[in-house]
Nucleic acid binder design. Sequence first.
DNA 1: GAGTGGTCTAGACCACTTG
DNA 2: AAGTGGTCTAGACCACTCT
Lengths: 258, 258
Amino acid sequence: MTDIAYRRVAEDLRSAIAAGEYPAGSHLPSENELMARYGVSRGTIRQTYAQLLRQGLIASRQGSRRVVVDTHRVQSFEDVISFSIWVRSMGGIPSGKVIRLEWRDATDEEQEKLNLGSGAAVVHMIRLRLMNDKPAMVERSAYPADIGRIVAGLDLERDSVTERLAAEGHAFARASHTIDALSAGREDARLLDVAVRTPLLRDRRVSLNAAGRPLEYTEDRYRADVVSFTIGNSEQVNHLARRSKPLRDPSSYRIAGT
Amino acid sequence: MTDIAYRRVAEDLRSAIAAGEYPAGSHLPSENELMARYGVSRGTIRQTYAQLLRQGLIASRQGSRRVVVDTHRVQSFEDVISFSIWVRSMGGIPSGKVIRLEWRDATDEEQEKLNLGSGAAVVHMIRLRLMNDKPAMVERSAYPADIGRIVAGLDLERDSVTERLAAEGHAFARASHTIDALSAGREDARLLDVAVRTPLLRDRRVSLNAAGRPLEYTEDRYRADVVSFTIGNSEQVNHLARRSKPLRDPSSYRIAGT
DNA sequence: GAGTGGTCTAGACCACTTG
DNA sequence: AAGTGGTCTAGACCACTCT
């Protein structure tokens, strides 16, 4: 679809990997092979493989062919930023329940993170996110006024904010996350259907557009028995993904009655 | 230091950034400038900037000069893998207290993660890690026999396992992490000096050498009031770092008496 | 020794940002 | 309009892996 050559080749390879044509651990085509197959130069193929490396799909070693990494997983920027896109990428059904939606003055933290002046108004939203109708995460988000106007007009039970904002010309281009752990408070516990003081995994992030303007400040609190993060890193590359836990040992987590 | 041109230029730029020559938000030299200054071709300079982008130090936009990213932070693979190196990079003093060190048969999980046959022996270590004599993390590590022999011979109260293994020819080249949250159990609580059921941030990882052989399987449990992880990501790049929390609001965490 | 990826050069055209 | 980064080509030599 894209008209950029190295990305077209990368898309083909990702599809082939996803289709099982190159299983985990198997060798990928050499640079020479792909140059001939696509009629492009070596630099272009190297750009292709550099992208797959950044995305954590492959590993490479001088002298040996590139191999497919074993943790095969749909992997894109949007998977990490958008709960809806991530859930759908795993074949699940995402939904949301708006707990609160209001205009109010930005807190000090929101002013700082969203780069707003004092007294600026934001749209603040609290939303329970569900995966296949099971509570997975509570999301608390703040949007600057012009973005907030759009968000407030969406069907937040069903729409993906990320996708709808992108359609309006406000695509997220990058984000910086801080990940830590905290205890479920009373509201968290009630919404997520867990006991008070259950440990939750927290992701706070600022999402920026391509020009570096902050569009959203969000705090996500995940049930640690449902979601974890995976990160692969080396001197050359880091990659990040959300992971759904298989719930193989439900007894180790206390679930509150409702 | 290195004899690879693009890395030499990258080292120079990292030093200049660290020295404050290019403050956060400032513009970096154009590709043309660096080509002239170092007498290399454009491709080499582009490799340099690609590395700095991967490391999360800079951001780039077509048509505009590259800029230094604001979250300046010492950033290297070893910072994320090695507690000792990370603490020292922030000017702190790392130490460790060995709680248990033993040879035993690998558990099923260790066999899988370390790629060992059934019945294989591992060295298993539990160690409390301190930053400036304050408990920060409990580490539980398993090593295959040949690596374990080396580890068992170290001064584990003071040495960096990562650095000593590298000196013996067993350098870690990459790792894959799973991050989630859990409740402090009795042993965790006692060692970390927190109340039982305090939420902890957990990082489980397998560290591999360049050939892809697993050298270590580790589970780290961090005090969430002391350490968090930061991640920056975009379509092009992800980067990961540990962050020390400033402890600005100690009242929000219950600390157990000892 | 043949094949492969890592590094490097010297050009080119285009899209985008900025004065 | 000039400058800058994004993409692409067509070569080259080297270090490493494999058999």
